[in-house]
């Protein structure tokens, strides 16, 4: 491993992949979590249970599943996505979306149900009502976002399986740590681990700062 260029490149790739996966999870998770929390439809509690189970999906299982989809022998093999950053993004989205959906639903369900009536009673349209509830639940919603990011930046099993840990292409911090450990380069592995922790901390710190702004 060459310093510092390669480490920088791996770090940037890790951040990009996890940020995009978290972003997609948010785009999926906010509406679906809201629907599950506020909607009235048949099977709602069943879907909530499915999502809550999904929050604990083992990354390697997700990795295996996504890999089987993307392998040349799989249904989406023609898209040539296996061992690309896109493949990692797909797998990580599968991992973090249930986290964001589940925590979004929990955040909204923890609000006083009468707030909805109150908002309608003040003339809110459906979208204004949802927007106001999101704003009211902004602290737990940011926590959902942090949990989603945390579940993917630190994940190794799926990234290894669908990304392939290919140097200069799909090697991310976690897979690089596994590799350096297997090489016996424990010092480098530890340094990469410290880097990963620092990055996770900085991202969470930034989000917590946004979250706690105006709190006293």
């Amino acid at each position: 491993m060459s310093f510092p260029y390669e480490i920088l490149q791996i770090t940037i790739l890790s951040l990009q992949i996890s940020a995009i996966a978290t972003g997609i999870s948010l785009l999926i998770g906010l509406p679906l979590g809201t629907l599950l929390a506020l909607g009235k439809f048949w099977g709602r509690s069943f879907f909530l249970s499915v999502v809550n189970t999904g929050m604990g999906l083992p990354p390697v299982v997700v990795g295996l599943f996504v890999a089987m989809m993307l392998w040349r022998s799989g249904p989406f093999g023609d898209m040539n996505l296996i061992y690309t950053p896109t493949a990692i993004i797909i797998a990580q989205t599968v991992i973090s979306a249930p986290v964001v959906i589940g925590l979004t639903a929990a955040a909204l369900q923890s609000l006083d149900p009468r707030l909805r009536l109150q908002l309608y009673g003040l003339g809110a349209s459906r979208w204004q009502m949802i927007w106001a509830l999101w704003r009211e639940a902004r602290l737990p919603l940011l926590a959902a976002l942090m949990a989603g990011f945390g579940s993917v930046i630190s994940e190794v099993g799926a990234s290894m399986m669908v990304g392939g840990n290919i140097r200069n292409q799909t090697r991310v911090l976690t897979t690089a740590i596994v590799l350096e450990t297997s090489k016996g380069n424990f010092e480098i592995a530890m340094a990469l681990g410290a880097l990963l922790l620092t990055i996770t901390f900085l991202v969470n710190w930034a989000l917590t700062w946004v979250q706690q702004r105006g709190e006293d």
Partner: peptide, 9 residues
């Protein structure tokens, strides 16, 4: 390319 993984993978 370098896989950085075991022989099976």
């Amino acid at each position: 390319i370098e896989s950085g993984q075991g022989m099976g993978a």
